[in-house]
Simulated scan of single mutants.
Amino acid sequence: MSSPPAALRMIEVSGTEALWLLEGSALGRLVYPQRDLTVVRPGRHTWEYGRVVVRTPAPAAAIPVDATYHVDEVREATGTGWSVTVAGPVDVITDPDEAALPHSLEGMGGAPIRRTLSGWTHGPHDNLLRLHPTTVSGFRLVRAGA
């Protein structure tokens, strides 16, 4: 017989720690309303100059003025991990020269943003967005005794 799973709890983290967790990850989900539905699209992101740059298969015309981006990492074996959500105004990066600018992070080797943030689809619904976080929330999932 297996033993029952250890009790877990969620601990809220500071905005600074939440952004640090987001910056250390690469995959997330863009969330926005469209008609009477909530739409969730996968995204690849990077943190750049206080903004989240996201590449996602969402049509530019469907992106609202404000959106939410969610990132998490949960370890299935232990049930521990973290979750971060940022929300704020969104700009669609339409200038091809801006999309081709070298990426600012050292580990990216100066690759253009569009190439650095590989997408799932390449075509009219593959867009780059810049989200200006006005709200940040984050939580860690930890064992109850920790």
Rank of each mutant, 00 (worst) to 15 (best):
M1N: 08
S3N: 08
P5S: 12
A6N: 09
A7Q: 14
E12D: 06
V13H: 07
G15L: 12
T16I: 11
W20V: 12
W20S: 12
L21M: 15
E23C: 08
G28S: 07
P33G: 15
P33N: 12
P33C: 14
D36L: 07
D36K: 12
D36H: 11
T38A: 11
V39Q: 13
V39H: 10
V40G: 09
P42F: 10
R44H: 08
H45G: 03
E48A: 15
V52L: 14
A58P: 03
A58Q: 06
P59I: 05
I63Y: 01
I63V: 14
P64N: 04
D66Q: 14
T68A: 15
Y69W: 08
H70L: 10
V71A: 06
V71T: 07
E73V: 14
V74M: 03
V84T: 01
T85A: 11
P89K: 14
V92W: 06
V92I: 09
I93E: 00
I93S: 00
T94V: 11
D95E: 00
A100W: 09
P102Q: 07
L105D: 02
G107Q: 03
G109F: 13
R115I: 04
T116R: 13
T116L: 15
L117Y: 03
S118L: 14
W120N: 09
H122P: 02
H125R: 15
L128E: 10
L128D: 11
L128V: 07
R130M: 05
H132M: 05
H132Q: 10
P133N: 07
T135S: 10
V136Y: 01
S137W: 02
G138P: 01
F139P: 01
R140M: 04
R140C: 04
A144Y: 14
G145Q: 08
